[in-house]
Design a protein around this nucleic acid. Structure first.
Lengths: 242, 242
DNA sequence: CGATAGATTGATACTGCTCAATATGGGTGG
DNA sequence: CCACCCATATTGAGCAGTATCAATCTATCG
């Protein structure tokens, strides 16, 4: 897909899912000095307490944001898929409050945050799209608090699978019923507030009930309705329509 | 304090903690058609799936945002103190994804969301301040995911107390070492992902260790250093400085 | 002065964690 | 092309932290 190769196309496509752009907006985006870098799996794009200098869009691969407690346990607060904007907070906040790390090899387009800030200042619709994106992200965080705070293990895992599937579909990354899960069971554990051992058992349970099928890292959702019910999943919080 | 009585003063004060306003910005705020309403404790200002029509600033009292699971358990995702903007997401999202409910009697200034949106469109610095506020709120949600996902009961409660104390101080609401906790132990439980019974025992433990002192709903932090350590609290995620 | 919401206490149950061992399979160097 | 190696996945057994359930106590308020 050209979107994934061409950083400008990826950024335009992302913003057009959030608002309507005009020709001047598109021209301003084309004029950005975007550069593309490839990073290996496990690479830290941003570390907590870094000074925030760049702004990134993910072109291919998968990335997560996470925070660590004082005694070293990790909480993944979100996963990101191709097309996601990774650092909008860097436009207005000086210091990173979490880590951003690649899960797989990833291609990232980036520009200095001040450049993107200047774009937002010059093009109000682009600023509005970005602001909306940060609001949707905040909504996703709220849902994650609910997931981790008030659901049992089976629901948490089911909900996470639902969210990943729907976000991939919204982003135009293939079918919702069968997809590759790029993350390890340890990633899933750190995202759901469980241990890897218990995630393993929970996935087996979902498999044994015929809700999902697993084969390596590929997941097939055998019964979307029951997965949704198991996770208490309602996609409204993703605000799919503007 | 006049800030708490005068809705315009409260809004100007809030935005000036986020950015620098000029006279035209302040004049535009003064021209808003703000109205003030008083609501009793337990009142729903917004319900999930409501169409989002108004935008509010809290003048006095305390409010929380929360979501419910399918089987009815509640997760509080944030508490709000006087001076907080409650509905910025309503400027750009059509449908509420969570409930907003008063904890105590509360005075709220409000205007139609479209009016506030027009203000943001007309005054870029105000839009920027609001955007920054939503980014800081997102950071608070991320920290809450960590708190609920990866800390034990004692740490969760300690962290919550730290956050509340520091936010009150940033907002200029009195001293950090002694303050009224407006919420019940059930509120604390729903915010930390625990049960009220266990919150009670945890508070007693913090008291027995001499870290806090309790008397009714008033909390005195006897040993800030140890409370901070117990909660693994680092205020950087609140982004106190611009 | 009762009514009621909230706080406190005790006893017991259970979900998910810990620790430790084993299996799997994809990648790599010889 | 094969054997080894490492990360990851899987399994089992026992334990711990919180939940649950059910009283009782205590303020506050009409």
């Amino acid at each position: 897909m050209s979107t994934r190769r061409n950083p400008y196309g990826a950024l335009v496509a992302k913003l057009e899912r959030l608002t309507t752009l005009d020709d001047a907006d598109r021209a301003a985006i084309q004029a950005l000095p975007l550069r593309v870098s490839i990073y290996p799996a496990g690479y830290f794009l941003v570390r907590e307490s870094d000074t925030t200098e760049d702004c990134r869009i993910l072109l291919s691969g998968y990335v997560c944001r996470h925070k660590l407690t004082g005694d070293g346990s990790r909480q993944i607060v979100s996963f990101h898929i191709p097309g996601d904007l990774l650092d909008l907070q860097h436009l207005l906040l000086r210091c990173a409050d979490h880590n951003i790390q690649t899960i797989t090899e990833a291609a990232v387009a980036w520009a200095p945050a001040v450049t993107i800030k200047a774009l937002a200042d010059a093009r109000p619709r682009i600023a509005e799209a970005m602001w909306r994106d940060t609001l949707i992200e905040a909504s996703i965080f709220r849902e994650r608090v609910l997931n981790v705070g008030r659901r049992d293990a089976k629901s948490r895992v089911a909900h996470m699978l639902c969210e990943f599937a729907v976000r991939c579909e919204i982003a135009g990354l293939g079918t919702m019923t069968s997809f590759d899960l790029p993350m390890t069971q340890e990633h899933i554990a750190d995202a759901t507030g469980l241990t890897p051992v218990h995630v393993n058992r929970t996935l087996q349970m979902l498999g044994a009930e015929g809700i999902i099928e697993r084969e390596r890292r590929r997941i097939t959702i055998a019964d979307w309705q029951r997965l949704r019910d198991a996770g208490g999943f309602d996609p409204a919080y993703l605000h799919p329509a503007t």
